[in-house]
Design a protein around this nucleic acid. Sequence first.
DNA 1: GTCTATATGGCGATAGAC
DNA 2: GTCTATCGCCATATAGAC
Lengths: 210, 210
Amino acid sequence: MAAKEKNTETMILEAAHRVFLKKGMSGARMQEIANEAGINKALLHYYFKNKEVLFTSVFRVALGQFIPRLQSVLTSDLSFADKLTEISIKYHEMLMQNPYLPGFILQEVNREPEKLITQFKDSGVDKDEILGLLQNEIEAYLGITIDPRHFLISLVSLVIFPIFSMPMMCGLFFDNNKQDYKAFLEQRKVLVPELLLGGIKAMGNKLKSM
Amino acid sequence: MAAKEKNTETMILEAAHRVFLKKGMSGARMQEIANEAGINKALLHYYFKNKEVLFTSVFRVALGQFIPRLQSVLTSDLSFADKLTEISIKYHEMLMQNPYLPGFILQEVNREPEKLITQFKDSGVDKDEILGLLQNEIEAYLGITIDPRHFLISLVSLVIFPIFSMPMMCGLFFDNNKQDYKAFLEQRKVLVPELLLGGIKAMGNKLKSM
DNA sequence: GTCTATATGGCGATAGAC
DNA sequence: GTCTATCGCCATATAGAC
């Protein structure tokens, strides 16, 4: 399984993953996937009867990569700040290796919103547990009670969007210098937890006064 | 210009805008655009010689919508906090009316990164002026010196991503109840400036110790 | 300017040999 | 399981009448 050649189905799935993530469902070509996998179109259809089936297989894997396993980090014995740093760094690394992942998932969820719900149930992630754990941490660490979804959605926004929008941000604010932007992101992965903890505290005070 | 019927070219551009933003370049169909505009395919090609040209016209308009005119707000005589609230609210309103805009722009910038640079120069937005204004405000208001791009990119992440990822967030954390999620976003548009101001202060301290 | 009809090419999918 | 060859459709684009 290590050095030897992988079987055809795996090679197809990996090739399809690369092509679909970059081009999307309608932009991808079966021919390109076949080339990428080193086979021909007919064999593609032998393993996956049509484009939709192949796409769905790729989507399932991609969704699993995209939705992080937060429970294990949140139930560890780290401090809240260290847990956040851990999440930020791990997510940063994963996204830097799969820059097309967020766009791919979000585009497809737009195309067929119901698909997400179905496949999410199979993923083994318990959203209520995560939100409960988060709320406890926020109360213990910051002494405030807020909807943990504000925290979580702020966190993922700050982690995902700067990477997801790399070509745009890099073009607009870094003269298209990718190395500079990567160094900037590298800084951010430890800064984001600080920003969040400081920010949520301020946000909690605002919420009390509303 | 008000109530009367618009000319054909405008109708085509508006129809193309709707279809391209929802489906993207490769997902959009010239037939669908023609239907949407109430004409036929041949007339489409009379006004725009091919799909690529039509798409580029739509992209130019969309980019103008997407990149906000920050200068006027930043040079107004509001307090920094009020300026941020103004930006957050205006951007929120615009994005709620054009939910597909971020995905459209970012997808296309991925496809052809050079296009952004060219078209951005024509837009009349001066990035150095904006970053300079921001840096001054941050120094005056918070007493810290940081790279203003950290601030700006955090701001747009917190404003754009929760709206852009509405179908996903709504599905994952709001049982697909769109009204609930919209109310949640409505809250956020005034909370985000608080979060940012509190957060950047904390981040500035962290940066000093690095 | 606007239409109907048609050309042209590309893409997903299948047939059938090996 | 893997290939070559091909079908049939659909999307872009054009020709040409009005």
